[in-house]
Write a protein that binds this DNA or RNA. Structure first.
Lengths: 347, 347
DNA sequence: TGTACAAGTTTAAACGATTAAACATATATT
DNA sequence: AATATATGTTTAATCGTTTAAACTTGTACA
């Protein structure tokens, strides 16, 4: 076998060890305790200034960085929070994640995230994983059928905040919008613009927050409501079927309210493919913001959730729960209707 | 002050302590060492089966879960990786994040993420933060002017992989697409479709991977190239100026290649507002995928990066580096041109 | 009867930090 | 001179785990 001068394998055993308090202590000739006191600015008035200076210099010279794992173990606190969303690749989730990341940083916390894919089992697994890693608290967007997980978290007394989704029958910290009102804003707007027959495209789900959107719409539409139900695993197919049914109805729709961003996008694609003009033939209101709405030939009106407020409120609530605030808080924010041309008939 | 029967503050001092090996040991009446050996299936052939069964039962009954922080400290390994992206709220970043999350999980790793906002300083801070938390390795999408950070990581011998962006002059692990080829695919396609005067909208940056896109385009266009430069902090403004200049040129463009998703979206909005029809008056090719491209009246042709391959390759490379593979690997993947109606003139 | 070995378990150190308590030594107070 | 106080530093335990090494007891064999 030829000698390979460039083979770095042999040098790879050399791994620079991290500098510890012990290294500094030995370097200066004092105990690790003293080094710790100096670097943490404790016992300030007791410590010899020259020694303190020497220790600080040594820490600097050796490029000392405290091992947060060791700190966490001793302090029984990791300054890490777990964030469980449906799918970090979904813009709603990733925008929330970004807001929480920034807000967490201002409190000295880092974020470990996980995607549940709307699966209760994956949610369980993620909760366990994050708790095993000793996160100080959790922010969770729950999928369906996770009552057991919520009760478990309550039983073991872990700080957590539900975001976006929650169970109205279980008392927990939660931060969400008022989905009933949000839907009513959308429907009322369509009615105010003269639309009589309004279709609602919504998920077939047990999730309370999504059903509130339906309830808000139906409350205004009464027997005039046409509801299209969409399975989470057959979005395109069911959206198409819903729209087709809305149009072939004896009294066909003149407006459609889509109750999520994915439903809106799927619906707009189908309306496009049918050659139906928005808003002249059908008016449209969507839910949640995406670039696609801006760029659409008739910029899409939509219900805009206050993402920054949602993210910040959930983080603040979590931190105060971690810091021993013990009463439960339910934060409900109002969404805003952004009106653009997809729902306004030109005169 | 009235007595508040519902005040839970008083009970809040009760905090369920996590069950430790010591608790199991005391419960069964053995040493923690034995408990550890049993639960980790070590020394199998030496341990009394009845005792082992008792220990396992106790662990189960007490709902024992190993403290990963303590494990990490002892093992000098956290099974956590740090992911630094420009902005987790950007679809490109969040899609990559999702892929890395999934792939990491199959290796037993978790992901802590951070957004650099294209700032070299924030990148430094994030690297320090993540290293302080003892991540086993890093996957980083670097912003400009971060050579020092790369050299620092090399000096302290931390496993890391650069994704999307890298310095061709610094030997590091990296995973990216061939941006030169990607741009050429886009330009060649436009030329093949009879476009003669092609504008290229690109960031004014020192980032190699972005300049490769320009280089690829210019290589084919030669003196026919019209380049619009866009500052990262003035995207809309500069995109508008570039397009206006392209159009008012004595020899105006008949096609535009946008070299990122944000540039594409910004450009399409301006083209819309000018009432210019795509593809009849101007053909367009974008970069990276977004829902907005699908929904556009002329679905947008775009350069599609192999996100799944990028994510998986970077994670695999990182893991093998963590596990002591010592040679540097540069992975370069090919992007694919997805052709739709925005770049095809109807006959 | 003494030695070797196997079986089963414990001891103790280690990971890197924090911190109450103890310990020296010097200085002030009576 | 004896005692109190201030100053400066160390000792040792702790967080929860892992694991090499040591220890105990029993059994087999010469």
């Amino acid at each position: 076998m030829p000698l390979n001068l460039f083979n770095t394998k042999n040098t790879s055993t050399f791994m620079k060890k991290n500098v510890s308090l012990k290294d500094i202590a030995e370097h200066v000739g004092v105990s690790t305790a003293l080094v710790s006191y100096v670097l943490n600015n404790k016992l300030k008035d007791r410590i010899n200034k020259d020694v303190a200076a020497k220790i600080k210099k040594a820490a600097e010279d050796l490029n000392y960085r405290p091992n947060q794992i060791a700190r966490s173990l001793k302090a029984q606190k990791t300054f890490t929070i777990g964030l469980i969303v449906a799918d970090i690749a979904n813009p709603f989730s990733s925008q929330i994640a970004r807001i929480i990341e920034d807000e967490a940083k201002t409190y000295g916390y880092s974020v470990i995230f996980g995607s549940s894919d709307e699966s209760a089992e994956k949610t369980s697994d993620l909760i366990k994983l994050l708790l095993d890693r000793q996160v100080d608290g959790l922010i969770i967007a729950l999928p369906e059928h996770t009552e057991a997980q919520v009760h478990y978290l309550q039983k073991i007394n872990v700080p957590f905040v539900l975001i976006d989704r929650y169970y109205p029958t279980i008392q927990t910290n939660s931060v969400s919008i008022n989905n009933f009102n949000a839907a009513q804003k959308a429907i009322q707007h369509l009615m105010d613009n003269g639309h009589k027959r309004i279709g609602v495209v919504a998920y077939k789900t047990s999730l309370f927050h999504l059903n509130e959107r339906i309830r808000g719409a139906v409350d205004l539409l009464a027997e005039n409501a046409l509801i299209g139900e969409v399975g989470i695993n057959s979005i395109n197919q069911d959206v198409i079927a819903s729209i087709d049914r809305f149009l072939s109805d004896p009294d066909p729709v003149d407006a459609i309210f889509f109750t999520s961003n994915l439903l809106t996008i799927s619906g707009l694609k189908h309306i496009n493919s049918l050659g139906i003009r928005i808003p002249d033939q059908i008016a449209v209101v969507g839910f949640d913001e995406t670039d696609a709405f801006d760029l659409f030939y008739a910029p899409v009106s939509f219900v805009k959730q206050p993402l920054v407020d949602l993210g910040n409120a959930s983080l603040k609530l979590l931190i105060s729960t971690i810091e021993n605030k013990d009463n439960i808080e339910v934060v409900e924010l109002e969404a805003e209707l952004v009106i653009r041309s997809s729902s306004i008939i030109q005169k």
